[in-house]
Nucleic acid binder design. Structure first.
Length: 269
DNA sequence: ACCCAGGAAATTC
DNA sequence: GAATTTCATGGG
């Protein structure tokens, strides 16, 4: 299907800016990936988004929200750009970034895997997790395994994905989510500090992983995760600002800054 | 061999 | 309590 008049959306910028780990760019420039158990192929032609392998119903019920197409990123960029010239520059550098509405458990699990790790290897571990424990859709595309399925595993069972010391963290998260001790849809509605504390009941989840889960999995756009890149960026590029100064869309600002920083490492030499 | 990676737990002071 | 060390794994 074709969706016209899509602004402020670039597939490469959004799908490969460090917020999601499972979208693959094809040789022809299209992207293929799985979410909500569905495999789709995406391409962009000017302001037209072309989605293959999707029904109209799935677009309305899943993908429009997944790609956050209802939110006016143009206005948000205008407001954020007033806050700081370097933020304005970062937003201009990748004006097509949007914050995805990823599935909560997938985001939680992915960012547990992300700790003290690099992005290429995070992608590899997540991919092996899906290959080993998800359900095959077609070719090398698999669903993300449910928390229930992972909760039944032991660290030895997870050995093939080579997550290292994170294996027991993944399992602890799965147990608490699958067992109902943590209800991610309730966390979505909690006040931000309470939500963080709830997620941090999981072994292996600290402030940073909690904030990433809230921003990328529960769409809490005011969350401003501070990883090593963002700490460097704040110290070097925004010394007079604090995370809270970026406001209710601070998470979007954070993503512009994170991506801009990662693409310009020379700024921090 | 050494260092780092979208950190957090375990140990030590 | 705050600072330091350790934790698997892979790539440069």
């Amino acid at each position: 299907m074709r969706v016209e008049n899509i602004k402020d959306f670039d597939l490469a910028q959004t799908l490969d800016c460090g917020q999601a780990f499972r979208w693959r760019e094809q040789e022809d420039g299209s992207f293929r990936g799985v979410a909500h158990g569905r495999l789709i192929t995406l391409r962009k032609d000017d302001e037209t988004l072309i989605i293959d392998g999707v029904s109209d119903g799935d677009y309305d019920s899943i993908w429009r929200n997944y790609f956050d197409l209802e939110l006016d990123y143009g206005s948000i960029k205008t407001e954020l750009s007033k806050l700081h010239p370097t933020l304005s520059e970062a937003a201009k550098f990748a004006p097509g970034i949007r914050i995805l509405n990823q599935e909560p458990w997938e985001a939680l699990c992915s960012f547990i895997i992300s700790q003290n790790n690099n992005i290429p290897r995070i992608k590899g571990i997540v991919e092996r997790l899906c290959q080993n424990f998800g359900e095959q859709i077609e070719d090398d595309f698999y669903t993300f395994p449910s928390a229930e399925k992972i909760a039944a595993m032991t660290p030895d069972d997870l050995a093939p994905i080579r997550a290292g010391f994170r294996a027991r963290y993944i399992i602890d998260g799965a147990e608490k989510v699958a067992g109902g001790e943590i209800n991610l849809e309730e966390v979505r509605e909690m006040e931000i500090e309470e939500a963080r504390k709830e997620l941090m009941k999981i072994t292996g989840v600290g402030v940073k992983v909690a904030d990433c889960t809230l921003l990328y999995g529960l769409h809490r756009l005011d969350c401003f995760p501070l990883d090593v890149w963002m700490k460097r960026a704040m110290a070097t590029l925004f010394p007079e600002m604090k995370p809270g100064d970026f406001g209710k869309y601070g998470g979007i600002a954070q993503q512009y800054i994170f991506h801009y920083s990662r693409m310009h490492p020379e700024l921090f030499e």
